[in-house]
Amino acid sequence: MVKAEAVHKRFGRLEVLKGINLKVEPGEVMCLLGPSGSGKSTFLRCINHLEKINSGRLSVDGELVGYREAGGELHELRESEVSRQRAQIGMVFQQFNLFPHMTALENLIEAPTRVLKLGRDEARERARALLAQVGLTDKVDAYPAQLSGGQQQRVAIARALAMRPKLMLFDEPTSALDPELVGDVLDAMRQLARDGMTMIVVTHEMGFAREVADTVVFMDGGVVVESGKPTQVLAQPRHERTKAFLSKVL
């Protein structure tokens, strides 16, 4: 589903990603772990072209992200084509980023009706079903400011799902939440993983990674230090840096 080959990313002279090679299979759940500044979030944002990569190849479902290859040259995609690619990739942010001037339902039908040109009634129906799925049937008409952080994040997950994406990206989805609200959000994500969604999750929730992830990737300093099954990476890390990191967070 996602294939990264020697992906590099610079901000000015600061090199944030120094050659990332990864492969995510359809239906796989991958958790990215690592200290802050290790490039996990940047890598995630490259996958839906919120950040442009400087070198390497990054493709989703066999299609290069943000470019087209023709005649041995890379051509930048037009804005509408980038938007079409992004519409197939859901993203959940640390700060939720719900649209505050719209109710939960309006948040969920905005992009489906305007981008996918879905009928209003169908979009509403889809939105209600998704809000029910994340346990917020009674919050359909609430504005984000009237919801707790955990409820907001679940609306944000439902909003991303309303586009029927083939891949979901989670950028530290529980880091801005009160501890007692984390559980509901993780439950929603767990359910999604069981339903077979392909997911890449940047997280500090080791319990979630151990239980749900098919693959755990440990990043540090812009490179992948090690990756493998959670039982292996979390329980028997091979690298000193992974050991040092895990000893601090576990």
């Binding site: 942010f93 980023n97 981008v115």
Partner: peptide, 16 residues
């Protein structure tokens, strides 16, 4: 800024 990013991630164009 997060609002623009959220909209972009949903496939909404700049003008929209």
């Amino acid at each position: 800024e997060g609002q623009t990013q959220a909209a972009a991630s949903l496939g909404m164009g700049r003008l929209l």
